[in-house]
Every structure is written in structure tokens, then in C-alpha cells.
């Protein structure tokens, strides 16, 4: 049996869910889903002088984030893991635990045992021009699948759409070997310095790549007027690695820009065994300087291979 949602009934399905949940339609979002659990700028608690009490933001309603892409769902699995270490990030999970994630995919979904479980609670997988197959992946997913708009069929036309929408196909393949990525990025700092010298002249250091990255999670904290505020930070910004004595660990844009790669591909591999990248392509799409991260990694790989072949001969 295949559970199916008619394309033209997606909005009805959402409207029905909207009676119980707050619905967030993420289909046209520029910022990645992390924004709903780890907002760009958030007062995490305030202190009230009169009552001498600390209060934290209250999440009133369960909410559904609709329309996440497969890379974003994958990123959410990783971000959940990251936010659990070394201890659970309370403010992240107080939102995350209330959220239901619905993915929307034009590409065919690969499920266990062939592939790892994709993230999300439910995924709508396009099976032909008018219909989506409904994949419920978690208990939360089952809860929202009880809808009169989801119908079960025995025989249904399932068209296999080719993987056409992968924004960075080569990088996606490279991510299958995170150890290699980690090795070549670490190698590049001293042995492929030209790459970083060139990039430091192009990069504006504006931080957009980190803001739009579904797996960048660095923040800065500011205490002010009886409240604590945390805000996304970006490692390309000049004061990111500056400490209170005034010392800056990353004095140059070259160091800062490399740090972005180092964290994603070297440090992340050491800490989690995988790269913190899902090849969603946002960093390239929104980079005002047109930096293509996939291309940078391909260049490093080529230089590394050249270096190896010279070393052998």
C-alpha cells in the first residue's frame, strides 16, 4: 500500500494541519531550517528586577516546518547531533522537540537498508506530475499522517525521476569520503597556499556563507540590560576569534576563510566522523563574490593528486 497526497491538495492538507499546529512554509526560504530552532538573534533569557526571576522564551504551540529539501533534512539530522554535544543545547531543543519536519522532494528517496534514514518526520516524494508518495519516518510523522487528504492505493504510477536537482553533484560524491576531504583540506593550508591567497582577495568576509549554511552554528553572546542575547556569528568576520585580552587567533581574512573550511571538513571529521556539509549549494548561490565551494574543493583535490603523483615518481 502506498499513501498518496494529490499535488493539488497540498494546501488543503496544510490547512487541516494548521488547525492543530503552527505551519511554517519553508519552500521559499533563503535561510536554512536552523533558523527555526536557533534563531539568528534571540534573547535566550531575561531577568526581571522586580520579581527577581529569570524567564526564558516560551514555545506555545507545536509547529510544522513544511517543504524542506533532502539536503536540509540531512542537515537537520546532523545539527540535532551537534546540538546534543557536549551537552544538550536547551534553547535549541526546546524548539526542536516541538517541531515536525515535512520534506518535499522532486527526487526519488532512498530508504534503509540501502541508504541511511533521511531526516524529517514525513517526506512527500514526487511520484508523478500530480501526486506525491507520503513517507512517514517517525512517530511524529505517523501523528500527522492521520489525514483525510492522504489516501492509500495498491497500484499507483511511480515514475522514477532522475536526480536532477542536486546543486553540487561532485561535492556530494566527495562527501562520501569525509576522511579524504579532511586530509586534503588540512594538507592544503601549507601545501596549496595559493588557493587561500587567491580566495582572501576575493572573499568579502561578509559572513553570508555561514548564515545560509544549514550546518554553521557558531554564535556570539551578549549580555545587556538584564537579558542574554545570542546571535549567529561568522568565522569570516574580523572579531570572531578575538578574545578579551584583545588577542586575535585569526588575524587575517585568509586564516578566517580557511577556518570555515577547516571546521566543516577537518574538525567536523575529527569530532563527528563526517563533514559538516550537505552540498545544498546555498553558500555558492548567495555568495556576493561568487565563490564556489565545490570548485575550491575540486581544485584542492586536483592539486593534492598532483602532489602525490610527483611524490611517488
Amino acid at each position: 500500500m502506498v499513501q498518496v497526497l494529490e499535488k493539488k491538495q497540498i494546501n488543503d492538507f496544510l490547512a487541516e494541519l494548521g488547525k492543530k499546529f503552527e505551519i511554517i512554509d519553508a519552500r521559499n526560504d533563503i535561510l536554512p531550517p536552523k533558523q527555526y530552532f536557533f534563531p539568528p538573534k534571540e534573547e535566550i533569557f531575561t531577568f526581571d528586577k522586580k520579581s527577581a526571576r529569570v524567564s526564558i522564551p516560551k514555545i506555545k504551540k507545536d509547529f510544522i516546518i513544511f517543504g524542506l529539501s533532502l539536503p536540509d533534512l540531512e542537515a537537520m539530522v546532523q545539527l540535532d547531533e551537534i546540538m546534543r554535544k557536549p551537552q544538550e543545547d536547551f534553547f535549541y531543543f526546546q524548539r526542536r522537540n516541538r517541531a515536525y519536519l515535512i520534506g518535499l522532494s522532486e527526487d526519488p528517496i532512498c530508504l534503509p537498508p540501502v541508504c541511511a534514514l533521511p531526516g524529517g518526520d514525513m517526506i512527500l516524494e514526487k511520484i508523478n506530475e500530480g501526486q506525491y508518495r507520503v513517507l512517514t519516518l517517525t512517530d511524529k510523522g505517523k501523528k500527522i499522517a492521520k489525514s483525510r487528504f492522504l489516501k492509500s492505493f495498491k497500484n499507483i504510477e511511480i515514475k522514477k525521476y532522475p536526480d536532477g536537482l542536486v546543486p553540487m553533484p561532485t561535492l556530494k560524491k566527495m562527501l562520501l569520503d569525509p576522511e579524504y576531504l579532511s586530509d586534503i583540506v588540512a594538507w592544503s593550508w601549507k601545501n596549496d597556499a595559493k588557493i587561500w591567497d587567491d580566495l582572501k582577495d576575493i572573499c568579502l568576509g561578509c559572513g553570508i556563507c555561514t548564515y545560509v549554511c544549514p550546518l554553521c552554528y557558531c554564535f556570539s553572546v551578549e549580555d545587556r540590560n538584564a537579558s542574554r542575547c545570542r546571535q549567529w556569528d561568522a568565522c569570516t568576520l574580523p572579531n570572531f576569534a578575538k578574545i578579551s585580552s584583545g588577542f586575535n587567533f585569526h588575524k587575517t581574512l585568509k586564516e578566517r576563510y580557511y577556518n570555515w573550511f577547516f571546521h566543516k571538513f577537518v574538525r567536523a571529521y575529527k569530532e563527528y566522523g563526517k563533514s559538516q556539509c550537505v552540498a545544498c549549494g546555498r553558500c555558492k548561490k548567495y555568495c556576493p563574490a561568487g565563490i564556489d565551494i565545490e570548485k575550491v574543493l575540486i581544485n584542492i583535490k586536483e592539486d593534492y593528486e598532483k602532489y602525490l603523483s610527483v611524490a611517488k615518481s
Binding site: D29, I30, L31, P40, K41, L204, G205, C206, G207, I208, Y211, V212, W232, D233, A234, L237, P238, N239, Y286, P288
Partner: peptide, 16 residues
């Protein structure tokens, strides 16, 4: 010490 770009992205603007 950050660019307008942070606030611009938060406002949901694509990049000029």
C-alpha cells in the same frame, strides 16, 4: 563588527 549582510539575510532578501 558584522556587515549589513547579516541583517539583510535575516530580513529574507536575496543578495543584490
Amino acid at each position: 563588527n558584522y556587515s549589513v549582510c547579516f541583517e539583510c539575510k535575516v530580513e529574507g532578501n536575496p543578495c543584490r
